[in-house]
């Protein structure tokens, strides 16, 4: 220790008294800082909004005019069935983007800096997910708006629609954990995208999102009944069309809770292990 010349203070112990874990309050504030970063990124890459702006407009018009006559006799009768289904589908698509973007982000140098910072391991994951709730809100609102422009009159009124949008956001945030987990295990953004679409398409189309489940073959009806997306769609329908909190809302929320309970720990674990 005699050779040290520059250090002004060699006796104080810089490690003394430092916390060994991140507190819950710090975890929250770090997550919000990460969310702030994600919104800055969104503002600069506007194409990140395409899937929640262009897609709702396009799909609502397309699906209504193509399937409306076949499923319900005419377009205006089909809209109350279609709009809640499309909301579930658009929010799920937006969730896929959450995972893909995380994967792209993780390949960049800044993520290594996040890893060496004394911050909660969950914040870099949860932050973008919080920011993406904004995208789910845009997707759900725009889908409703397009539907209303096409003649859809939701029976639940403003309050029912508002609750339906909130439910869509909660669903989006919960299901995003699945795709975030894909994001942490996939080898590249393309792989993550591939996996995610493979999961997303059966989930949305093998549900009651676009057609009444009663028109499906028996075996498919069983799948549809257990598909969590069906419950979300039914819940959104009951909220928007009748303004009612039916049991479906409870099932949808329970489904979301289960998805979080399974996939959030998986995602955090595989993220912390990743170097």
């Amino acid at each position: 220790m005699t050779t040290i010349s520059r250090s002004p203070d060699v006796t104080a112990d810089p490690a003394a008294g430092l916390p060994t874990h991140v507190s819950l309050a710090d975890t929250f504030s770090q997550t919000m800082t990460m969310a702030w970063r994600a919104t800055l990124k969104m503002r600069r890459n506007f194409e990140q909004f395409f899937d929640v702006t262009i897609q709702p407009l396009l799909f609502t018009a397309m699906f209504a005019y193509i399937f409306g006559g076949a499923v319900s006799g005419d377009v205006s009768k089909y809209l109350p069935i279609l709009i809640p289904g499309l909301i579930a589908q658009t929010v799920l698509t937006a969730c896929v983007a959450t995972g893909v973007q995380l994967r792209e982000d993780m390949d960049k140098g800044v993520f290594d800096r996040f890893r060496v910072l004394p911050i909660s391991r969950i914040a870099p994951l949860a932050g973008p997910m919080v920011a993406d709730m904004l995208r789910y809100a845009i997707a759900a609102t725009l889908t409703f708006a397009t539907g209303i422009a096409m003649g859809y009159r939701p029976g639940g009124g403003f309050f029912g629609v508002f609750c339906a949008i909130i439910l869509a956001i909660i669903t989006g945030w919960s299901l995003a954990w699945v795709f975030t987990w894909f994001g942490t295990v996939g080898k590249s953004a393309q792989v993550v995208q591939g996996y995610s679409l493979m999961v997303m398409f059966p989930l949305t189309f093998l549900s009651n999102a676009f057609v009444p489940a009663s028109t499906l073959p028996d075996w498919l009806q069983t799948f549809v009944k257990f598909n969590p997306v069906s419950h979300v769609v039914s819940a959104v329908r009951s909220l928007a069309n009748q303004g009612q909190f039916t049991g479906e809302v409870g099932w949808a929320l329970l489904g979301c809770g289960i998805v979080i309970a399974i996939f959030a720990p998986l995602a955090v674990r595989s993220f912390s292990r990743k170097i």
Binding site: L40, K41, R44, G109, V110, D112, R113
Partner: peptide, 10 residues
Amino acid sequence: GQYASVDENL
């Protein structure tokens, strides 16, 4: 280091 860098989007 080359790995722990800053955020290019900001």
